[in-house]
Design a protein around this nucleic acid. Structure first.
Lengths: 216, 216
DNA sequence: GCACTTTTTTAGGTTTGTCTAAATATTTTA
DNA sequence: TAAAATATTTAGACAAACCTAAAAAAGTGC
């Protein structure tokens, strides 16, 4: 159907599209650890297959077909991540690389059965929504902890960054998905946030607060 | 570590080695659906990496390292096949192609946990032994049904051929792994075998009898 | 043991997906 | 608005893993 390289490009374009309208060649090159010239080559190929809209120098967007494929890969990635955590007892900071390989297993029947096996979950271990078999996803309206005012309570629902070191740090502070937090103080000088998680008081930097997502 | 193509060659060499001492270029080409010249190229490359013993015109054998890698891929293949049948309810004739992709997921930690998740199974859905994490496998001493004399009882323990059409046919006759059979007659003319499976009488051709394995 | 057949290897070519270096387009800045 | 900086594309090369066609080695039959 599509090659591994093509699938990785579509996925990268999808993710970058969430933050801007047109994804640039350099943005893609940075995300994929490739040279811009290689990206240009592939963009031509994907445009040829009408998976993206590409005008030279103007960046790209996904076509409907391209987006569908991207969402299917993301669906597979997130379902496999959840499988690894739920069934095989991996930690949330360990599963990304494995899922990067598993998301390319082609069978859709397989992934639909995995979905059923896990009881049609809505979210992966990092709180990211899992597209259903039609590519639909539950969009939660999440805010970073850094946007909370003092004395506000909220529930941790996601992370903006999946780096293992970041996830391990959150784990250590018990700042994991589903936990309730309450903001007790915001340090004016550096915008550090002091908050309570289940009776424990912890302090996190603005950087951390920006990357930890909550719903009210 | 190793490329997908390399892994497929090592696996093919392993399987062909079970039937003969030195695997020839043409045997490999036939099994892998490739031209002999392509095989020669890859054999040089694998010899370079000391995964096989290769002398031009003399065929190949696996080195210890090569065999270890082959067994690890077979371990993954068979564990994933069992997962698909046991956990996701696929039929035994549906899982081969999916497992061909899944066997290349690199993480050994993953496969060891999958092994644990399924309670350290010894055999896959076709009765083939699953190598343990050290590459050891339980060898059952299996014979084809065609080797049974009249009036002998036995238990179905494996198949020599994994073609979906063959497996579906066996399924229809209820000639599946674990079933007890009893040979009642052997037709002299074409060596067809008439046997009883759980009170039902069925007749199978010599070809089928050759590919269905039992233990006494 | 020599001709014939079959098997294997060699030589040279193709595609995919990457690269470097150079050229060109766009954007920024002064 | 022109020069400088940055972003993007083009041109040409390379490695992996295939291919076809031709050459060479091995095996076989009389």
């Amino acid at each position: 159907m599509n090659t591994l390289a093509e699938e990785n490009y579509l996925k990268a374009i999808y993710h970058l599209s969430l933050d801007c309208d047109n994804v640039s060649t350099n943005q893609l090159a940075a995300r994929l650890n490739m040279k811009a010239s290689s990206v240009t080559d592939m963009l031509k190929k994907l445009a040829e297959k009408t998976l993206i809209n590409y005008t030279p120098y103007q960046g790209v967007t996904l076509t409907d077909t391209g987006e569908k494929i991207a969402l299917n890969i993301i669906r597979k990635h997130r379902l496999w991540e959840l499988f690894l955590v739920e069934k095989l007892d991996f930690r949330w900071d360990e599963v990304h690389e494995m899922a990067e390989e598993m998301e390319h297993i082609s069978s859709n029947e397989l992934i639909d059965r995995l979905d059923r096996f896990m009881n049609y979950p809505k979210f992966d271990p990092h709180g990211d929504p899992i597209p259903d078999c039609n590519g639909k996803l539950d969009t939660q309206n999440l805010k970073p902890v850094s946007a909370l005012p003092i004395d506000q309570s909220a529930t941790i629902c996601g992370v903006r960054n999946h780096a293992p070191a970041f996830l391990q740090y959150l784990e250590k502070l018990e700042l994991t998905i589903g936990r309730k937090i309450h903001v007790t103080e915001i340090i004016e000088f550096d915008h550090s946030v002091i908050l309570k998680v289940e009776d424990k008081t912890v302090q996190i930097s603005r950087e951390i607060a920006n990357n930890l997502l909550i719903s009210l």
